[in-house]
């Protein structure tokens, strides 16, 4: 079975509008975009992508934080993500 993180990864970065709502397994929901990612280790049982860097829309707008700042945004563990939904069409691409 194909790794769910890989399916998500391939679909997400092909999308033109990447603003999403991410709901974590602990119930917290955030609006924003994923800007980068960390690969898992092929020699262990990691998912294809183990972590994501996420910038919240609000942060983006207010602080004009550039996404290449080394510690911009927050890092999310893939396994803690419950669902990701696109803002423009409400398509849920990961659940």
């Amino acid at each position: 079975m194909k790794d769910a993180s890989k399916i998500f990864f391939e679909k997400y970065f092909k999308s033109s509008n990447r603003f999403v709502v991410v709901t974590m397994k602990n119930g917290i929901a955030r609006n924003g975009i994923f800007i980068s990612f960390f690969y898992g280790n092929e020699y262990s049982n990691d998912p294809y992508i183990i972590k994501w860097r996420f910038i919240e829309t609000e942060h983006f707008a207010k602080n004009k934080i550039v996404d290449w700042d080394i510690d911009a945004g927050i890092i999310m563990n893939h396994i803690e993500i419950k669902s990701v939904k696109f803002k423009n069409n409400d398509e849920t691409i990961f659940e």
């Binding site: 970065f13 800007i35 980068s36 990612f37 960390f38 690969y39 898992g40 280790n41 020699y43 262990s44 990691d46 183990i50 860097r53 996404d67 290449w68």
Partner: peptide, 16 residues
């Protein structure tokens, strides 16, 4: 090195 490789962050170059 395997552990460090998991700490390397990538992003699509097209967005830059």
């Amino acid at each position: 090195r395997r552990t460090l490789n998991k700490m390397v962050e990538f992003s699509p170059i097209i967005q830059h």
